[in-house]
Amino acid sequence: MTDGVLLELQGISKSYNKEVLSVDRLTLKKGQVYGIIGPSGAGKSTLLRIINLLTPPTNGVYLFEGAPLPTNGRELLKLQRKMSLVFQKTVLFKDSVWNNVAYGLRARGYQREEVKERVSHLLEHVGLADLSRRRADTLSGGEAQRVAIARAVAFDPELLLLDEPTANLDPVNVELIENMIRTLNHEKGITVIMVTHNGFQARRIADEVIFINQGRIVETGPAEKIFSNPEKESTRMFIEGRMIF
């Protein structure tokens, strides 16, 4: 196993009627924030779903911390529990904010006291303590997305996957969520992969940027380099807003 490597994908592809994603090689390091950018329909969400084991790839090798995908269902679940995914369309359970945030802990069999301690600490930490008793279906869009992120990190995953977490949110909530992501990465060391349409957001948050177009990884590199001096013309076109899609 290579030191510091969290995830490695080799020759991963996904086809339905036609191929929608083909990744020759992608290596993700621990503790980094990755921004996946690209036009609509480029395969960004499919890549997140494959990483989260929600969608099986058609072909390829998936290595998590150097180990291949287990074939045993129990081991597969154990691996899936090392990560969590926040979807673009927030789905909160019809329950209190508290019970939503506690869901993943209870699924992992945490004891009642530990659930209580972790949930109250986390809600305090991310500024949601006042909402703990509120029914999740009464929250505003921004509050709901913050609860969804809190719920996804309550059990300290090694990898947090975010699919357009700030789409359709106002600037104040965008800033709140971006701060939340930075804090989680800095303080808990959680590796983050965030899909975003917004190049500026990727530049603000990501250490590394992955540009995907038409189902293929076109370019990866440090955020500053990708945005100031991209190697590929299509990357430059996307960043400069000249890509028609």
């Binding site: 929600l54 899936q80 979807f87 359970f93 019809k94 869901y103 993943g104 699924a107 996804a152």
Partner: peptide, 23 residues
């Protein structure tokens, strides 16, 4: 979408199905 949310939070198949029923 409820089942996928449950699974992405670490629910096994039985819990994910129960969550869908509950929701």
């Amino acid at each position: 979408e409820i089942e996928e949310t449950a699974r992405s939070l670490g629910a096994n198949s039985a819990l994910a199905t129960w969550t869908v029923i509950r929701e």
